[in-house]
């Protein structure tokens, strides 16, 4: 009789555990990130137009309250001697590359977050501190971030950076597409200051049209490749260039969405908690069967 009630108990526990996790599953997967609109805002960077004045670096720092030298200092071109990457001291940087066909016309390439359509950092973030906004911006929430740096592992462009020198409250820093400015109908700081219109702000679809038009009009000036049109599922920021992008230090990327199969695997393993719950039930069943089997056998000791 005792055995009977235990058996029922196990059964009930298993079933209720399955129901419980099943119910909470709906909540977990409902808490997805806001997805961008079908046609987010973007920026087209024309590296053949950029003159390397680095005014955008200054404007960016001003807009984000980062310490900066006076704007006149940015005329000093010795900054181009070393290849630089964005970090907490500068969310965007310009690098200069030699133009093999025209020595006097080097290519200057602005680097910042690409604001992917399907960002790996957003998918990776353990607490959902990275979010893709409707206007295309990928932004970071300091109130949630725990500083695990998984976004940095995930980013195909190696953009997010971390304040390693801080023992307390280190930030993840990266370009936020001037989210606070665009909210108030202002242009991104770098776009606003650019004296040569090397960066154009607009709807992503319009920018793509513009880019294609430029390539058609000046086929000798451009490579027939818009970086960011298809790379990692498309990005809000896109580039035009006069030489191959890997020579301008862009990583070679496939057209697969940045998070890759990672999300599919996660959802496969969990798919509304059915696989874990089934495993639980299966193990419970095995435990119960083996217990009964060893009960029915005479004690060997």
């Amino acid at each position: 009789m005792k055995n009977q009630s235990r058996r029922d108990f196990l059964k009930i526990t298993t079933i209720s555990a399955t129901a419980l996790v099943g119910a909470s599953a709906t909540k977990l997967f409902a808490s997805g990130n806001p997805t961008s609109s079908i046609d987010p805002m973007g920026v087209l960077v024309d590296t053949t137009v950029c003159i390397g004045c680095r005014k955008c670096e200054w404007a960016c720092k001003k807009a984000h309250n980062i310490d900066t030298k006076p704007i006149e200092d940015y005329d000093n071109r010795s900054a181009f001697e070393n290849y630089r990457r964005p970090d907490h001291t500068s969310l965007t940087v310009v690098n200069e590359f030699r133009n093999p066909t025209a020595e006097s016309k080097p290519y200057d390439v602005k680097v910042q977050c690409m604001h992917c359509n399907e960002p790996a950092c957003v998918s990776a973030c353990i607490v959902g501190a990275m979010t893709k906004q409707e206007n295309g911006s990928v932004i970071w929430d300091t109130d949630k971030c725990i500083g695990c740096r998984f976004c940095m592992v995930a980013c195909p462009f190696q953009i997010p950076t971390f304040e390693y020198h801080k023992a307390l409250q280190p930030d993840i820093t990266k370009c936020d597409f001037c989210f606070e400015r665009t909210k108030e109908a202002l242009l991104p700081a770098c776009v606003e200051i650019c004296p040569v219109e090397a960066v154009t702000y607009g709807k992503r679809s319009e920018l793509l049209k513009l880019a294609k038009k430029r390539i058609n009009l000046y086929p000798e000036r451009y490579k027939e490749h818009i970086l960011g049109e298809h790379e990692v599922g498309g990005t809000s920021w896109m580039y035009l260039a006069g030489m191959d992008f890997d020579k301008l230090k862009f990583p070679k990327l496939s057209t697969k969405a940045a998070p890759g199969v990672s999300e599919a695997i996660q959802h496969g393993i969990f798919s509304y908690f059915v696989p874990p719950a089934s495993l639980f039930a299966l193990l419970g069943g095995i435990m119960w069967l083996n217990k009964n089997k060893s009960k029915s056998e005479p004690d060997t000791e």
Partner: peptide, 14 residues
């Protein structure tokens, strides 16, 4: 924070 801000897409969260 991992206990209260959930991101079901993240392997690290799991």
């Amino acid at each position: 924070h991992a206990l209260i801000y959930w991101n079901g897409n993240s392997a690290l969260f799991e």
